[in-house]
């Protein structure tokens, strides 16, 4: 998928653990893991709202659009 979830980046910036986030947001660790690994098909506005509230950020800080072309370029560069 072209949408990348940067929860782990935001967690590192806020120096917060995944367990702490799951407790504060009120979603299970397994669901957070699905979100982090990019397996999620959709995200509810309420969940996004709660994550942004806890991490004190905007939805754009968590979600990022990456076109197939740029992904390929990144892959070649690495």
């Amino acid at each position: 998928m072209a949408i990348i979830v940067n929860v782990d980046v935001m967690l590192a910036r806020r120096k917060m653990s995944l367990t702490e986030l799951s407790e504060k947001v009120g979603i299970t660790m397994s669901n957070l893991s699905i979100l982090k690994t990019g397996k999620a098909k959709a995200i509810r506005f309420s969940t996004l709202d709660a994550i942004c509230e806890v991490l004190e950020c905007n939805p754009g800080d968590i979600l990022e659009f990456q076109s197939a072309h740029s992904r390929l370029r990144k892959k070649i560069a690495s």
Binding site: I34, K39, A40, K41, A42, T47
Partner: peptide, 8 residues
């Protein structure tokens, strides 16, 4: 169902 299960 898969879509529903993978909606966070």
């Amino acid at each position: 169902k898969q879509e529903n299960d993978l909606t966070i």
